[in-house]
Simulated assay, not measured.
Amino acid sequence: MNSYMIKKLDLLYKRYKYISKKLGNYRTYNDYNSLRNLSTEYSKLSNIIRPFLKWKKLQLNLINNKILLKEKDKEIYLMVLEDIKNIKIKQKKIEKILYKLLSPKKEEDDRNCFIEIKAGSGGNEAAIFVKNISRMYIRYAESKKWKIEIINIHYNENGNGFKEIILKIMGIGVYGKLKFESGGHRVQRVPETESQGRIHTSTCIIAVMPELLKTEISEINYQDLKIDTFRSSGAGGQHVNTTDSAIRITHLPTGIVVECQDERSQHKNKAKALSVLAARINTLEIEKKNKDNAIKKKILLGSGDRSDRNRTYNFIQKRVTDHRINLTIYKLNEIMDGNLDILINPIIYQYNTIKL
Rank of each mutant, 00 (worst) to 15 (best):
N156S: 14
E219P: 06
K214P: 14
D228S: 04
H185I: 07
W146G: 03
V174F: 01
S218T: 15
P210C: 09
H154P: 06
R189E: 07
N152W: 10
A207E: 11
S218F: 08
I150H: 05
H185M: 09
Q261M: 14
M209C: 01
S233W: 02
E219D: 12
Y155L: 11
T203C: 00
I206S: 06
G234A: 05
E211K: 12
K226Q: 13
V240P: 05
N160E: 10
G184M: 03
G234C: 01
Q238Y: 11
L225G: 02
P191I: 10
G236N: 08
V208F: 11
S218C: 13
N156I: 13
E259L: 07
H154S: 13
S232E: 10
I206F: 05
M209T: 02
D228Q: 00
H251R: 03
L225V: 00
T215A: 12
S232R: 10
K163N: 15
S218A: 12
K268A: 12
G183V: 04
I217E: 04
E263F: 13
C260E: 04
N269V: 07
R189Y: 14
K179C: 07
I153C: 08
L213I: 09
S232G: 15
M170A: 14
I206D: 03
K147I: 13
T203R: 05
R186Q: 03
K268Q: 15
I220G: 06
D262M: 15
I247E: 04
R264D: 11
N241A: 07
P253V: 08
I169N: 10
I150N: 09
V190E: 02
H267P: 06
Y175H: 08
E149H: 15
N269R: 08
G171N: 06
T193G: 05
E157K: 15
M170W: 04
N221Q: 08
I227P: 04
I206L: 07
S202N: 00
I227L: 02
E194G: 08
G161W: 13
E216K: 12
S233Y: 08
P191V: 10
T242E: 13
A246H: 03
E216H: 09
S233C: 11
T193S: 12
R198Q: 00
A207C: 05
T243D: 10
N156A: 08
S182C: 08
G234D: 03
G234K: 00
Y155E: 14
T193M: 05
G173A: 01
K226L: 14
R198D: 04
G183M: 00
H239A: 07
T201G: 06
H251W: 01
N158R: 12
R186A: 00
S195H: 07
K168Q: 15
T193K: 09
K226P: 09
S265E: 01
T203P: 00
C204S: 09
F180I: 11
E216D: 09
P191C: 09
